[in-house]
Amino acid sequence: MTTAVVHSTRPAADPFTHPKLVAAPAVVDVKAEFVVITPDVARDMLRRNTHNRPIRQNRVNANVRMMLAGQWDVNGEAVKIAHDGTILDGQHRLLAVVKSGVTITTLVVTGLPLKAQDTMDGGAKRTAGDVFALRGEHNSAILASVARKVWLWDNGDKRFSAGESATTPELNALLDANPSLRRSAEIAVRVYHSFRYIPPSVVGAAHHLTSRIAADEAVWFFQRLGDGAELPLRHPVLTLRNRVMTDKDAKRDVSDGRHMAQVLTAWNAVRDGKTSLAAIKIAADAPAVDPK
C-alpha cells in the first residue's frame, strides 16, 4: 500500500494555495480496505484477539447502543490487525457487532507489525465537549457534562455511578431533543461564578430536571442558590448552602450523586413549603430523590 505525506507548498504571501500531496515510499505488506463485518465475521476475527488490553464492557455497550440506533458511521477509524492475524485494535467494535447482531462497514488495516500496538490510542480523545464546541455551542464543556448527567439520570443512574456512559451521538440527540439544556448550562456557569461549592454539572442537571416540573420556580431557586439573598433562617436553600459549605470546609468527599440528592432534597422542601431544619435533613449522605 502506498501512503501519502502532506508537504505544504503554501507561500507566505499566498495563504490560499492548496498544499500538494507527495507520495511516500510504499509500506510493504500493509493493506487498508473497507470491509463488511457481520456478526459471524466478527466472531471469527475475535478468535485471534489474543494480545489486547482488558475489555471495557461499558465501551462495548455504548457501541451496541450506537449500532442498534443506526448511529454507527464510517469515519475512517480502523480495525487494525497484525501480520499474523492478531487483533491489535478494534476489539470493542467487534464485540459490539456480535452482541448487537448488527452488520457494519469499517476500515480494516492488515499486515501491521505487532509492535505497532505500543503507539495506538495515544492521542487525545475527542470529547463530547470538543464536538459541541465544533458545533458552535457556548459553554461547550459544561454543556456536555450537564447533558451527560441528565442522560445518566434519565437512564436510571441517579447516583451517577458511571456504570454506563453516554456516547457523543447520544448526547447530540439529547441536546437536539432538549434545547433547554443550553439554558441549564448557562445557569450552572452563573451559579458557579458566585457560589463554588457544587459542581456546575450537578447544578445544570438539577436545573434541567426541576425546570421540567416548574420552570418559573426553578429560576428563583437557582438564583437564591447562587446568591443566598434574603433567605430567612432555616430556609431550605440557606440550609443547602450551609451544608455544602460545611462539607467543603471540612474537606469531606461528597460525590456528584450526593450533591444532586442534596439539591433535590432542598428543592422538594421548598415545593412542600417546609422550613424546619429538622424536616429537610440535607445531609452529606442524602439518598437519591426525585424532584417533585
Rank of each mutant, 00 (worst) to 15 (best):
A12S: 10
A13D: 13
K20N: 09
V28H: 13
I37T: 01
R43D: 07
D44S: 11
D44W: 06
M45A: 10
R47G: 05
P54E: 12
I55W: 04
R56M: 14
V60F: 12
V60M: 07
N63T: 10
A69W: 00
D73F: 05
D73E: 06
V74N: 04
V79C: 00
K80M: 15
G85R: 01
D89K: 03
Q91M: 14
L94W: 01
V97L: 03
V97S: 03
A116W: 10
A116E: 11
D118E: 15
D118K: 15
R126I: 14
T127L: 03
A128Q: 09
D130K: 08
D130V: 10
V131I: 09
R135I: 04
R135V: 07
H138G: 05
H138A: 08
N139T: 01
W151N: 00
R159M: 04
S161K: 14
G163T: 15
E170C: 05
E170H: 06
L174F: 02
S180T: 12
L181H: 00
L181V: 00
R183Y: 08
R190A: 15
V191A: 11
H193A: 14
S194V: 13
S194C: 04
F195E: 07
P199I: 09
P200V: 02
S201A: 05
G204A: 03
A205V: 04
T210N: 06
S211P: 10
A215S: 14
A215T: 14
D216Y: 04
D216L: 08
A218K: 02
W220T: 12
F222W: 01
R234K: 15
P236I: 03
V237E: 14
V237L: 15
L240E: 10
R243T: 14
D249Y: 13
A250E: 09
K251T: 13
V254H: 15
M260V: 09
A261N: 03
Q262L: 05
T265M: 08
A266C: 06
N268F: 03
N268R: 02
G273M: 08
K274A: 13
L277W: 05
K281Y: 06
A283Q: 10
A284V: 13
P287C: 08
D290M: 14
